[in-house]
Nucleic acid binder design. Structure first.
Lengths: 237, 237
DNA sequence: CCAAAAGTGTTAATAGTACACCCATGC
DNA sequence: GCATGGGTGTACTATTAACACTTTTGG
């Protein structure tokens, strides 16, 4: 009776998104062993420890693989198809990277938003790199599926908690950066005049005196996200 | 090295909500062994099988414990605190119900919406019963926490996919039933006249000729949810 | 002076909110 | 005839969507 129940390893995988003023990028790690068949780039992820909550594991793994700390991480789904780790090359890699005879692997997927200029040290045996969403290669396991699913989640997340979008932008940003970011996330055109109006109505976005320099057109004004103003706003609801 | 990674059982737990024209109820199961310390009512849930996806496991477990089939089930979070199954009475029950030495248990939580008049057979060694949300007892593991978390999810779910709310109502329902249901889910008063207007603007809610009989006041009109009209509407977007 | 992106207002349509009285029925 | 819940309309406000030209700057 008892062996019919699953007894398994559990992993976390993180979809870390960054914005390069043009498009959304995902942070992928390069595996040191060459498993060409399934591609060597994958989502940052690893097995969780024995006495560890999954949420803690996600933070830890992200730090270990990319050097990134204190990222807002959001759990969004458990991927548990019985076949998700059954391709020969994936099993081979699991055996090399962890231990033999991992028969099945269930993963809990997370999303995180990251400033793309943030340094991601290459701490471990992995190196990490930003990859534009349009150029995502074939990845091992169901990582392509996980990434795809995460894109729907981020829209919902931003709608629920609009302030997180500023985690994708540098400290100082222009309205058009913010505009392009909104257009990327919602994957649609947003009228620029209505957008200015909308931003003007956000007390947490404050204009700075500083402007762009050295651009071959009218210099754009910089804005910053005012966390304090934002929490005040929230508390007054 | 390898023993630091978790190697664990995995369960699913389902929060099944029903509406009795007054308030939301959760479907709980009664355990056959008496574990009084932690209460004998719990969320329907069980371990998943070796070759089973978690989503499939949720449907199966719900059927096995309550007799309910083909419920829209929505995964909403993985609960994995290292201590969630470490209370002595919970471990004792796990040992009795499944097998000895389950050291830790990670669960994937689901929400489902159910017509409360739907018969839930008492198929297994469990019997199931509806329990008003205001009278939920102390439950084992972190089931109280899971139930609480699910209530936030259902609001979001209904906003995203309003048609699911009709899964909580009988085939024929009155506007005030629907009204009370909205008020329960959003936990706030909704103006009845504006509500009538809102319902009138929903092409998928169609008025029937039939009315209530034998009530000590003006008889209310019945309405039904027109699935076809609804999908047509969605496809035209 | 030209290319390139920044910045700026008005109007119309839609959705949401507030609010109070008469109607039908059983007892 | 009275208690109980069913059903109805209007006016105000807020939000969203559509739409085009002038400004600044570097080259």
């Amino acid at each position: 009776m008892s062996q019919q129940f699953i007894h398994t390893f559990l992993s976390v995988d993180c979809v870390v998104l960054g914005f390069d003023n043009e498009q959304l990028n995902a942070l992928l790690v390069k595996r040191d062993v060459s498993v060409e068949e399934a591609g060597s780039l994958k989502l940052p992820g690893s097995l969780i420890y024995d006495q560890e909550d999954v949420d803690d594991a996600a933070s830890r793994v992200l730090f270990e693989l990319t050097g990134i700390k204190k990222m807002p991480l959001r759990q969004f789904r458990c991927f548990a198809s019985p076949n998700r780790a059954s391709r020969a090359e994936d099993r081979k890699w699991l055996n090399q990277a962890y231990q033999p005879n991992i028969n099945r692997l269930i993963t809990v997927a997370y999303i995180a938003l990251c400033k793309i200029d943030r340094k991601h040290h290459n701490i471990s045996k992995y190196s990490s790199e930003w990859c534009p969403l349009k150029k995502i290669p074939q990845m091992p396991f169901d990582h392509n599926e996980i990434l795809l699913a995460s894109l729907g989640e981020i829209q919902k997340w931003v709608e629920m908690e609009p302030s997180i979008i500023f985690d994708l932008l540098p400290q100082k940003f222009t309205i058009s950066q913010l505009h392009r970011l909104y257009e990327s996330i919602y994957a649609k055109k947003i009228d620029i005049r209505n957008f200015h109006k909308k931003v003007a109505a956000m007390p947490q976005v404050v204009a700075l005196e500083e402007r762009e320099v050295g651009v071959a057109h009218r210099a754009a004004r910089f804005y910053k996200f005012d966390k304090k103003g934002y929490s005040k706003l929230k508390n007054n609801l």
